[in-house]
Write a protein that binds this DNA or RNA. Structure first.
Lengths: 126, 126
DNA sequence: GGCTATAGGGACAAATGTAGCCCTATGTCA
DNA sequence: TGACATAGGGCTACATTTGTCCCTATAGCC
């Protein structure tokens, strides 16, 4: 005779179909306050760290570096270091990173399309 | 004669073009560990809180409630309370929420497409 | 009565993420 | 020599997010 916990587990298994949806994986990769901005900028051709920092002025160099490192570690961007002084570094999307472009475009488009409403909604007071 | 800080500001203004890209707004709305899953499930027709909780077993009821409230506050989903006992509640996408579907689909598709690689990448050890 | 189911929230702890500060190193220009 | 550019990382403190535990309320079933 099954105990209550067993029944519960069976019940859950019956009802939960494919909860492990891919959207969770995508979210995980984009997790980080500035990652989407970084990917967008790099996709638009902004390659050097200093330029990225100028184009995303609300973020600290520190945080951008941290998140750039993570994007590189995840294989979405690659880093080229030119052995020069002063140092020169360029980031670009990898092949894998380029497969993300449709997602980036969809997010960019939706955000721009509904900009006014979103800015209202996202006010700290609201 | 401009002081150094002034030069810096002018320099930034010249180089920074349109850093306020829509992708940031979209990210902000999707911020929250389980929001994308919730939106996906609701979009797939899962409407009742208990069903959502069963389909997203890694999240606590508590957190799902918090994030459902936020999605409702942001106008992406609406909540119908049936005056019954035991209580019955159903969530569904609003018109505004439905405009997000292309983004959700793009994220879901990319995540599923690259599932194996992403699961490797996102291991805590890696 | 004791267990399940329905739905939800308060209070607090733990984890994670982000921001700020300081440091290195070197080349160019005034 | 001092200011600015280039690029990056360590450490600490704060902020935000998540997770845990406990509480309400009612109907059905054994």
């Amino acid at each position: 005779m099954p105990s209550a916990p067993d029944l519960l587990v069976m019940y859950q298994k019956k009802i939960a179909p494919d909860f492990e949806c891919g959207i969770v994986l995508t979210k995980e990769v984009l997790n980080g306050k500035w990652k989407s901005s970084l990917l967008y900028q790099i996709a638009m051709g902004v390659q050097r760290p200093s330029a990225l920092q100028r184009n995303i002025p609300d973020a600290t160099r520190r945080v951008l570096n941290v998140q750039l490192n993570e994007l590189e570690r995840h294989g979405l961007i690659s880093k080229t270091i030119y052995p020069q002084l002063p140092p020169k570094v360029e980031y670009s999307l990898t092949d894998f990173g380029r497969t993300l472009l449709p997602v980036i475009e969809a997010m960019t488009h939706w955000g721009n399309e509904h900009r006014e409403r979103l800015e209202q909604i996202l006010l700290p007071s609201h």
